[in-house]
Design a protein around this nucleic acid. Structure first.
Lengths: 232, 232
DNA sequence: CGAATCATTGAGCCTTTTCAACAGCCGTGG
DNA sequence: CCACGGCTGTTGAAAAGGCTCAATGATTCG
């Protein structure tokens, strides 16, 4: 028998009968697959008939532009759903693995069927989708209003918070994403991104290592962000 | 008896029994209210127990920042839903009227009840929500990758397309949004925004009038956008 | 007429990009 | 074991794009 998918766990937490995972949910069949870093999970234009969720690792929604540049729309962590919703649809953007990733695939039909059976499941799915929408709204606000430094701070803060929930305890959080990819998310060049975090390393807020960034203290990060606004 | 709400019309078009509006849908009760330009439709932090939709006019999702600046997250037109979904929730952003607006309010409970009755209604609601998400993804891409000129072009193109669907025929579309507000959407100062459209007016692509912008030809707008990418 | 909202214009400054190198880590194959 | 290529990260200097500040028009409404 399979382990529990993080997706199922997330959904279960949102159900009225909070806490224990309903046996019905646990019995849903899904198929796990492991992918390497950089592999494509869902290509733009793909028509999906399965609900694909992140089982382990980090992925990203992204768009490739005619001029060859790439915009990272958002990062996905364990338990996040890759599809826009549980119904068959066509993707208008791609999804790729940022780290090695395990994906858990469900049949659309099975999940749709369950929404008619399990009380509160549909609402739970809406709530889950809304979490991703909130992240997108934050992202838009960050891109539209912040200068490069503010955008870096907000992105690191968001990622550190999301990863610390899953991982072991809070304080030092490692974000296993290259600077180039992070820069592609907040719309700055990787060169400028590097200069900004270089400054933040000097102040001891974060540390860098090949392929990732270590956030020493989330609270210090937040304080830095607040200072930015006061200074502005 | 009431007229048909644009929201209901939109939903009906997405139902399997395409075309005619099911009598059940038409019988849903809703309450219409008219608001002035600038009025608040839903404040940030409000807990909503009603599904609020745009009946007529233009509105916007927005955030106010501590420093007093404002980010327009997206514009809403007739038929768009203001809530994140049909379940009670708390808003993490505000919604305000951009032009005089009529809102059509439904009870959460009534709509939720119908999803168990009307086949395909739930999927239609997901599809509708996904339309807004696609707009947000476009917005993120525009903010992250384009320079100011490209962002203006993309925003005008998006708005012109959405408004021309509702309005009378395609070609000349009037966008009744002030330059300041449009600038707040794409993250540039209204001063710089003005210089950019000044240039576009010279080229005859658009015309300006107090409180709005007239797009002469959507196709010309698109051609300009393509040229930008080639030039880059 | 006066106030308020919206639009327009000019000049200098500052952030960010671009271009061009170079250094470090890592897996691969000889 | 070592040499190599590929990805990742760093650094410098010049150029460009957009912002700020400061005024001035133009339109609507009470």
């Amino acid at each position: 028998m399979h382990h529990v998918s993080p997706f199922i766990r997330r959904v279960a937490q949102l159900l009225p009968s909070s806490g224990r995972v309903s046996p019905v949910l646990n019995s849903i069949h899904f198929r796990s697959t492991c992918l390497d870093k950089g592999d494509e999970i869902l290509g733009a234009g793909a028509s999906v008939r399965q609900v694909i969720t992140i089982g382990h690792g980090l992925a990203m929604r992204y768009r490739l532009l005619p001029d060859g540049s790439r915009q990272v729309i958002m990062f996905l962590t364990a338990g996040d759903i890759c599809n826009p919703h549980i119904y068959p649809t066509v993707m208008d953007h791609g999804i790729a693995a940022v780290t090695p990733v395990r994906i858990d695939r469900f049949d659309c039909e099975s999940l749709i069927g369950l929404t008619n059976t399990v009380v509160g499941l549909n609402q739970a799915l809406w709530t889950l989708a809304e979490e991703q929408n909130a992240i997108m709204r934050d992202h838009i606000t960050s891109l539209g209003r912040g200068d490069a430094r503010a955008r870096v701070l907000m992105l690191l803060k968001e990622l550190a918070m999301r990863l610390s929930i899953q991982g072991t305890g809070p304080s030092p959080v490692f974000i296993p994403i290259t600077q180039t990819l992070l820069a592609d998310a907040i719309g700055v060049t990787h060169i400028h991104f590097n200069r900004i975090i270089g400054d933040m390393v000097k102040r001891g807020v974060i540390a860098t290592s090949r392929g990732g960034i270590l956030v020493n203290s989330l609270s210090t990060l937040e304080k830095l962000g607040d200072d930015l606004i006061v200074a502005a």
